[in-house]
């Protein structure tokens, strides 16, 4: 059975049809790719599923429960973690604070606990901090724990953002161009990290990416989106050899 099921999702921005008739079905533990030229509607699909926009039409179900109409934080707490294409980090917060805060929905203490620093509150803070440190290790950013995020190199910020998303304990992780602006070495490291979190946390991943080599290497299945419509779906091999894809998208880039 699939973990996330999107049926017939269509979205208009005013008169612009950004996404039309989109379907997706991800099983637990899968890694999926979503490619397409600029403005194809990839990010919009993420925003629709994570509740930032509500689709004009269509259904979205996570573990057979509808997500339509829920607020983004509720969807996130149900197990849908994400990163953002333009990295929405909190500019006055440290790396550790980022990852700690993403535990928000898991906190067991309430306001009274926070006000008076009760024992439960302190225990929870300790647990969250420990967990956060573990995640920072996984993403190789532990040495920046107490630094403000804005001072860090681009690639590190990307990894912090992923660590933060993983702290929400997602069942599915949405990554919007996780390697944008990264150096080749960081790219290789990122492949390793994604493989590691995939096997360690058993998380399903949906990946938007422009670097085809990266997508082809990681993903089991890939969708190609052009003008809001999926024109091809299949294994990396099939996508690589699909004439429509080559014409619409790959033609201008070299497929390695």
């Amino acid at each position: 059975m699939s973990l996330l099921q999107v049926e017939d999702m269509t979205h208009f921005f005013g008169g612009l049809r950004a996404v039309s008739g989109y379907r997706l079905s991800i099983a637990a533990g899968e890694i999926r790719g979503l490619i397409g030229p600029n403005g194809a509607g990839k990010t919009t699909i993420f925003n629709l599923i994570t509740g930032i926009h509500t689709p004009t039409k269509g259904s979205i179900r996570l573990e057979n429960r509808s997500l339509i109409g829920l607020r983004p934080h509720q969807i996130a707490a149900r197990g849908l973690g994400r990163t953002f294409q333009n990295m929405l980090l909190w500019r006055h917060m440290t790396v550790l604070e980022h990852v700690k805060l993403a535990h928000y929905a898991q906190l067991k203490y309430g306001l009274a606990g926070a006000f008076f620093g009760t024992r439960l509150c302190r225990a929870e803070e300790e647990r969250v901090e420990e967990n956060a440190h573990r995640l920072l290790e996984t993403f190789d950013v532990a040495r920046f724990a107490h630094q403000n995020v804005t001072q860090l190199p681009y690639g590190v910020q990307r990894r912090v953002e992923m660590a933060r998303a993983m702290a929400t304990r997602p069942k599915i992780l949405f990554l919007d161009e996780p390697t944008a602006g990264m150096t080749p070495e960081e790219l290789v490291q990122m492949i390793g990290i994604i493989r590691q979190i995939h096997s360690e946390f058993k998380v399903a991943i949906l990946l938007i990416e422009h670097r085809l080599k990266f997508v082809m290497e990681l993903c089991q299945r890939i969708q190609t989106l052009v003008f809001g419509e999926v024109i091809a779906e299949g294994t990396p091999e099939e996508i690589k050899n699909n004439p429509q894809v080559i014409e619409a998208y790959l033609g201008k880039e070299e497929v390695a």
Partner: peptide, 18 residues
């Protein structure tokens, strides 16, 4: 700290379950 997150970026705060 959720207050800080709301201040610095509300969209990201929501996406991180806040």
């Amino acid at each position: 700290k959720a207050l800080n997150a709301v201040r610095d970026n509300e969209t990201a705060a929501e996406a991180m379950t806040v």
